[in-house]
Design a protein around this nucleic acid. Structure first.
Lengths: 259, 259
DNA sequence: CAGTGGTCTAGACCACGGG
DNA sequence: CCGTGGTCTAGACCACTGC
């Protein structure tokens, strides 16, 4: 009943959270130096290894540097968000003080096309549930989302009300968790459906995010193409020598069907 | 025979590299299971901790999952690149088999504007070197880059020939290394200069990447705005419960404030 | 030179998954 | 239940920075 979770938060995450707060409260920098690992280990009464785990989190988020020989330096109060917020439009919207809405525009079962088969790693004869959803921020259309779900997941999603605000949160209650996602960001032109629903003109430019999400076991959960009205959102990525989660991808001109 | 260079590659990185190769050669998956940490520790004759460091690298790159209770599962042969390739247009171009070119369009010293002062963390009276560079892929204009360098770095960049292919590689030879970068990706409209140099029309949509790079000590090195012709490039980002390097950023509609 | 973070070891206990 | 990865400890030595 109480907030006592089944599995308590690991010590190194608690420490990372405290340090993150200290940093965003400008206790050190920017440009300031963190205490040494040894000093932190003493302060928190843990081993140096635990401190290093905590600092690793901050480093991957781009909050601090680290190099041999000198103390860690505060880089910036970076705009860090939880994975859960990146993964859920509704959570993100709430975190910035907007009211998220969602409306299913169309929904139906289809046999998977080659792209869907590759992304969802399913057989040629498998079916997918395709859902088109309009996403709104405080009443204004912000994004149009076209998602394909594999059979098992589609059977759940299919039952949701058309105005479900957060599919992600519903799926979590059903025991479905997203653990990994790969995003491809580029530009697209509004097709007639985009234009009608987002309230722009056909051929207007949109920011496009294609996303493939998988569960903790590595099983693909969804393959989605989201189109954002320009001016409503930007994507921020941090990378470093320590981790390079972002890559450029070359696009060769492709021939598309006339639709 | 220990003829190793000054600093040898750490064991965990060697192991990660071997495993990465095995994965991309489809020795396990996709969907396959990796050997347990204990088995790998025995095979490579290292402690379990070292194996875990290696696996952590693969996990952050989105190559494998990891959860308690089961062996790691191969996710995909992900489009992983080195940080160095993400950071350098020329290196990236070569890696995809294209010939990179660069041309300085304009270059000059200015007093830093508020944006540059904040991004480069410099004083109000400091000067910056502003450089406008056109980047080409195999002869075709692909991107226009507007960069601001702080005084010390500008003094070096200023001396480069106008057709320098890789500024990054030159700076490395001068002992300047990029260790961290933050990227903001959204959409922009071509201004007259963009249009003239990229060969598009004014107001045409462009994919915009703003970037702030820092050195290993956390000192800002450059603040840049790159505008890509659509269709030439996409950005790919991997994130997970383990690390969330990407965030959405809300862009507030420009509202005229009435004093 | 002293202090720092990077690497590595050899243990330990626990939480979780799946048979 | 057993095997797995997640957390944590208490050391050790080394490479590097900066005085």
């Amino acid at each position: 009943m109480r907030g006592d979770p089944v599995t308590r938060e690991p010590r190194y995450r608690q420490i990372a959270e405290e340090l993150r707060h200290a940093i965003t409260e400008h206790a050190y920098g920017p440009g300031g130096k963190l205490p040494s690992e040894g000093a932190l280990a003493e302060r928190y009464e843990v081993s140096r290894g635990t401190i290093r785990q905590a600092l690793m989190l901050l480093r991957h988020d781009g909050l601090v540097t680290s190099r041999r020989g000198t103390r860690r330096v505060v880089l910036d109060d970076a705009p860090v968000q939880e994975f859960a917020q990146m993964q859920s439009f509704a959570r993100w919207a709430r975190s910035i003080g907007e009211t998220p809405e969602g409306r299913v525009i169309r929904q139906g079962w289809h046999s998977a096309d080659p792209d869907e088969r590759r992304q969802l790693r399913i057989d040629a004869d498998a079916r997918v549930l395709r859902v088109v959803r309009l996403r709104l921020l405080s009443g204004r259309p912000a994004m149009l989302e076209r998602t394909a779900y594999p059979e098992a997941l589609g059977a759940i999603v299919e039952t949701l009300p058309a105005d479900t605000v957060s599919v992600t949160e519903f799926l979590e209650q059903a025991g479905v968790f997203v653990a990994d996602a790969e995003h491809t960001i580029d530009l697209a032109r509004a097709d007639p459906q985009d234009a009608a629903l987002l309230g722009c003109a056909v051929e207007d430019p949109l920011l496009r995010e294609r996303r493939r999400s998988t569960d903790p076991a590595g099983v693909p959960l969804e393959w989605s193409e989201d189109r954002y009205l320009p001016g409503s959102v930007a994507f921020v990525v941090h990378n470093s020598l320590a981790s390079t989660p972002m890559t450029r991808q070359h696009m060769v001109p492709v021939v598309r069907d006339s639709g």
